[in-house]
Design a protein around this nucleic acid. Sequence first.
DNA 1: CGCTGCGACGTTACTCTATATCGCATATCG
DNA 2: CGATATGCGATATAGAGTAACGTCGCAGCG
Lengths: 164, 164
Amino acid sequence: MAEAGIMAGTQSVEATLDEAAAACAARGAQLTDLRRQVLRLILAAPHPIGAYALLDQLRAERPGAAPPTVYRALDFLRQQGLVHRVERLNAFVGCTGAEAHHACGHGHDHPHQFLICSVCGATAEVCDSRVSEAVASAARAAGFRPVRMTVEVEGRCAACAEVT
Amino acid sequence: MAEAGIMAGTQSVEATLDEAAAACAARGAQLTDLRRQVLRLILAAPHPIGAYALLDQLRAERPGAAPPTVYRALDFLRQQGLVHRVERLNAFVGCTGAEAHHACGHGHDHPHQFLICSVCGATAEVCDSRVSEAVASAARAAGFRPVRMTVEVEGRCAACAEVT
DNA sequence: CGCTGCGACGTTACTCTATATCGCATATCG
DNA sequence: CGATATGCGATATAGAGTAACGTCGCAGCG
């Protein structure tokens, strides 16, 4: 229970992949086999995963895979809002709760925040509008026109904080 | 005037270096020649500068410089709160307004935010407590114990926004 | 005096992250 | 049919960061 806030989506990876394919199709883009494989690996990983770890795993199914193979797929998945990049880790995670974000009116480039546990490596995505409002308003106060924001918090997740 | 929010400190680089040296000494650390050179290059750069660009410039004075040379100096300068890393850019900037931060009660690891202009590359550091409060409180609401935060906003600075 | 510990720095080598570029195949449309 | 677009294989290179080891100089101390 303590991990509730840190858990990824509860549905199966394959179901998520099917939803993702449908969402892409609805936008006129296609989730090809390669892209689907990459997304599957990301969703199956317990934590944010680096591009080259992804590449290693991908080679099991696709021996010819090279860095551009992975990066092209990642670029696509990010455009589609299916994957986010965690800047502090140079790693990638599946976007959890894309439905929720759409429900609250955000597009696929929604503002989000990451909570990164420096003990266990778990990374949770949250979507707090007060945070994005505060950041955007601080930026505007400086005469700045915000477009995209990165908010990443390093600390201890609930489970690791208990141990203290 | 439009750039007021984006300007770096107004005093000369050398004066800043002297202050930095004094601040280090007060903490029992020393700003050696190497560290001073690296800090000078960062302060003189108009924008955040990458480690390898720094290395290239450093080699003019110090032909034997290698990556560890730069990274060790950067680690020191970051510990001393004289330099920040911009995660989105994999680059480094001088900490503007360290005095102001100390004045408002923060140590040298103060929470800060970056405004990064995607047109001209200018990067401004701001220190808005409402932002850091909002982020910290969102994190705690998820049972997370925040330690350090990265807030980086990409958009258009005042000068570049005028042009539209 | 020589020993020891420590911090700063040099040096080599390596890993990881990311992009540029060329080229081929297919697909879709007028 | 040709023309343009997209996906992807393949090679090469740039950029970011770290590991490991050695050396020098400078305390403090028996």
